[in-house]
Write a protein that binds this DNA or RNA. Structure first.
Length: 588
RNA sequence: GCGCCCUUAGCUCAGUUGGAUAGAGCGUUGGUUUCCGGAGCCAAAGGCCGCAGGUUCGAAUCCUGCAGGGCGCGCCA
C-alpha cells in the first residue's frame, strides 16, 4: 500500500523510463498550486539538464504518453516544464476505498517486525518528576506508537536513574540520622506512607546535595555509601529497594496520567553487573587506555573537525560515569533483544555524549556496525519569557503540578465555551483531563523535535487555532454527527461507498496523503509532521461540513458517500491522535 | 577558542530531494446562522525569508563570509 502520490509516481516514473530517463524523475507530489492542479511532477526540468534537451519538449513527450491513461482527468504543462496532473473522481474514490479498508491506512509495513529499543524515560528515583521529563515522555511515546504502527516490534524502556551518587547522598543521610529501621518498616502498599516518604525525600535531597557541595567530608560519606550500595551491602541495598519501590509508584502514576507507556521498567542498577566484564573485554581488545589515572576509550577519528573527548569508563577515583552505564546498557540490550535500532529520546544538549557512546559501542563491537544508534534529541521547553520554563518563584516545576494546571485551565475553557454542560462531575473531570493532556501533548509534539518552544498554557489550551483541544472538538463534532445518523437509521456504508464530487474532493484528496505525513514522521522520528497533517484534516473536514449538507442530502448515493467520508475522517483523526498519544472523549 | 543549532508576517511557528504567487495559527478588519455542535466557516490586509556575496534556467532551501541569539566542549547526569 502506498499514498496516492506514490502510486502516481510509479505511473509517471514508468513513462520516464520508457523515454530512457531515470524513474526517480517521475516523482509526483501534491501540487503546491492547488488552483492549477491536484498533483505535479517537476522531473522534466531535471531531465532536460541530463539529456541536454528543452524541458518543454520532454514534458510534451511525457504528457502525450500520460494522456492515454484513464486515471487522469487532466495532464498539462505549465511554465518552464511543470507537469500538472488531476486524477478522475472514480480513481480517487477507488483509492480512498482501498486505504479505508487497510489497517495501516495505506502506510505500509516498513518495520517488518524488527525489534527496536526506545529510551525516553530517565527519571531519577527519590526525586520528584519535573517538566524536564515531560518532553522525553511525550515525544518518545509518540515515536514508539508510530514505529509500532509501522510494523516494528517496539520496546520502550524507562531506564530510571537508580544507581548514582544521588542515592549515596540520601542513603547515607538515613544511616546518619538512625532512620534505617523506620524506612525499612514502611508499608509499601499504603499510598499515604509512600507519599510521606516521597515528600521527605523531596525535601532531603536538595539539602544534602547542598551539604555535599559545602563539605568534602559529607561528600566522602555519600561516595562511600554509593560504593556500599553498589556492593549490595546491608542495609544500604535494602534501603535503596524501599526508596526505589516508593519512587516507581510515583513514576507509574505520573506516566499513567500522561498516558505514556513503557514496556520495560529497567534502571541503571540492572546493568551494574555487566560493567566489570565489559571493561575487561574492552581492555583485552586494546580499546581502552589509561590516562591521568582514569580508564578511557578514545573515540576521536582522523577526519574529526571538532574536539571529541574520550569516553571515560572509570574515573580517577575508580567510580563509573554515565557513559559507562550507557555502554553496559547496550551490552544488555544487545544480549536480550538484539535490536535493529536503539533510539534515545533525550535532551539535545546531551548530543555529544551520545556521539561518544555510539562511537565507543561500535568501536568495541558491543553493538554491530549495522545496528542503528540514534539520538533523537529535543529542545528546551521555555516559558513565555523565552527562558527555560520555571515556576513563578523561579524553581523547577513538578510534573504533577503542571498537569494539574493544564486540567484546571481546560476546565475553565470548557465552562467558557459552555461545553460538557450536561455531564456529571466525574465525566466532566474526565473530559477536562483529556483536554488538558491533549493541549500539552499537541503543543509539545507540534514543533519539530529539536527546536526549543514556548509553553504558553493560555494559548495551547484554546479551542481555537492549531491546538489539541481544537482537534478534540472537531473529532467530537464528527462523532456527534455519526451518532445522529445512526439515530435516524442511516447506516454507514462499508464498501463501494465513495462517489467523490466537487464538494468533498479536497477532503478526499487530503485523506489520501496520510502515508506521506506518516512516513516523514517515521523517517525523522518527528511526530510534528503528523500534528500538521491532523490539523489539516480537521480543518478540511470543518470546511466540508460547513459547505454542504450530509444528513439532509436527498440523493442517496451522495449522502452515503458523504456519510462514509465523515466516518473515515473520524477514523483517520482518531488514528492520528492515537499515534500522538492523545485520547479523544466520546463527547464534550 | 573550537563545534552544533537557530534568525521567515505585529506575536508563536511550518516550509520534504533546490521549483510556479513563501504558508499556518493567534491578533486585526469585513462577511456569514430559517438546516447536521457558530469557540465554526468564508474573505482581506500584513514579508528585501538576519546581512553581503557565490553556484543554478530557478535559492527561504546549497556554498563562503559577517552580525545577533541558544547550546555543548574529559573525570556531574
Amino acid at each position: 500500500m502506498t499514498s496516492l502520490s506514490d502510486k502516481l509516481s510509479h505511473v509517471v516514473g514508468q513513462v520516464f523510463v520508457d523515454s530512457e530517463l531515470p524513474a526517480e524523475l517521475g516523482q509526483v507530489r501534491v501540487s503546491d498550486r492547488p488552483d492549477l492542479a491536484q498533483f505535479q511532477c517537476n522531473g522534466a526540468m531535471a531531465a532536460a539538464k541530463l539529456a541536454k534537451k528543452n524541458p518543454r519538449d520532454i514534458a510534451n513527450d511525457v504528457v502525450g504518453k500520460l494522456q492515454t491513461q484513464d486515471v487522469f482527468s487532466k495532464v498539462d504543462i505549465a511554465g518552464p516544464g511543470f507537469i500538472n496532473i488531476d486524477v478522475t473522481d472514480d480513481f480517487l474514490s477507488a483509492h480512498l476505498e482501498m486505504i479505508r479498508a487497510d489497517e495501516r491506512l495505506g502506510a505500509g509495513n516498513s518495520g517488518q517486525d524488527q525489534t527496536i529499543v526506545l529510551d525516553y524515560g530517565g527519571p531519577n528515583i527519590a526525586k520528584p518528576m519535573h517538566v524536564g521529563h515531560l518532553r522525553a515522555a511525550i515525544i518518545g511515546d509518540s515515536v514508539r506508537r508510530i514505529m509500532k504502527f509501522a510494523g516494528f516490534h517496539t520496546l520502550g524502556d524507562v531506564h530510571m536513574g537508580d544507581w548514582g551518587t544521588h542515592m549515596g547522598m540520601i542513603i547515607s543521610e538515613f544511616i546518619k540520622t538512625g532512620d534505617t529501621d523506620r524506612i525499612l518498616g514502611l508499608d509499601l502498599d499504603d499510598e499515604a506512607q509512600i507519599d510521606a516518604l516521597m515528600k521527605e525525600l523531596g525535601e532531603m535531597y536538595p539539602r544534602v546535595a547542598g551539604e555535599c557541595k559545602e563539605s568534602e567530608t559529607r561528600k566522602e560519606e555519600a561516595r562511600e555509601a554509593t560504593v556500599r550500595i553498589q556492593n549490595k551491602e546491608t542495609p544500604y541495598f535494602e534501603l535503596l529497594q524501599v526508596i526505589k519501590a516508593a519512587s516507581v509508584n510515583g513514576m507509574r502514576r505520573n506516566y499513567a496520567t500522561l498516558g505514556v507507556h513503557f514496556d520495560l521498567w529497567k534502571g541503571e542498577s540492572d546493568v551494574h553487573d555487566y560493567i566489570a566484564p565489559m571493561v575487561e573485554d574492552i581492555k583485552a581488545n586494546n580499546h581502552a587506555v589509561e590516562d591521568d589515572g582514569a580508564l578511557i576509550i578514545p573515540v576521536k577519528t582522523e577526519d574529526d573537525k571538532k574536539e571529541v573527548p574520550p569516553l571515560i569508563l572509570y574515573k580517577r577515583d575508580g567510580g563509573v560515569m554515565y557513559g559507562t552505564t550507557d555502554m553496559a546498557t547496550l551490552v544488555e540490550r544487545e544480549k536480550l533483544y538484539n535490536p535493529a535500532r536503539v533510539i534515545y529520546v533525550v535532551d539535545q544538549r546531551q548530543h555529544l555524549h551520545f556521539e561518544q557512546v555510539f562511537r565507543a559501542a561500535k568501536l568495541t563491537g558491543i553493538i554491530p556496525v549495522g545496528t542503528e544508534l540514534t539520538h533523537a534529541g529535543f529542545g528546551t521547553m521555555n516559558g513565555t519569557d523565552g527562558k527555560p520554563f520555571k515556576t513563578r518563584a523561579g524553581g523547577v516545576m513538578k510534573l504533577e503540578d503542571l498537569i494539574a494546571m493544564a486540567e484546571e485551565t481546560a476546565m475553565k475553557r470548557l465552562n467558557e465555551a459552555a461545553l460538557a454542560e450536561d455531564m456529571d462531575a466525574d465525566e466532566k473531570a474526565d473530559v477536562a483531563h483529556k483536554v488538558g493532556i491533549a493541549a500539552i501533548k499537541f503543543a509539545d509534539l507540534s514543533n519539530p523535535r529539536v527546536t526549543d518552544y514556548v509553553f504558553d498554557l493560555e494559548r495551547l489550551t484554546s479551542f481555537e487555532g492549531k491546538t489539541g483541544p481544537y482537534l478534540l472538538y472537531q473529532a467530537v463534532r464528527i462523532k456527534s454527527l455519526l451518532k445522529k445518523a445512526e439515530a435516524q437509521g442511516l447506516a454507514i456504508p462499508q464498501a463501494d461507498a465513495f462517489a467523490i464530487g466537487d464538494a468533498d474532493r479536497a477532503l478526499a484528496l487530503l485523506l489520501t496523503e496520510f502515508p506521506d505525513a506518516f512516513n516523514f514522521a517515521l523517517r525523522d522520528y518527528m511526530p510534528h509532521h503528523l500534528c500538521e497533517y491532523a490539523y489539516r484534516v480537521a480543518s478540511a473536514f470543518s470546511s466540508f461540513y460547513g459547505n454542504c449538507h450530509i444528513l439532509s442530502e436527498e440523493d442517496e448515493a451522495i449522502r452515503n458517500s458523504r456519510l462514509a467520508l465523515c466516518a473515515f475522517t473520524y477514523e483517520m483523526l482518531i488514528q492520528i491522535l492515537e499515534l500522538l498519544g492523545i485520547e479523544v472523549p466520546e463527547r464534550m
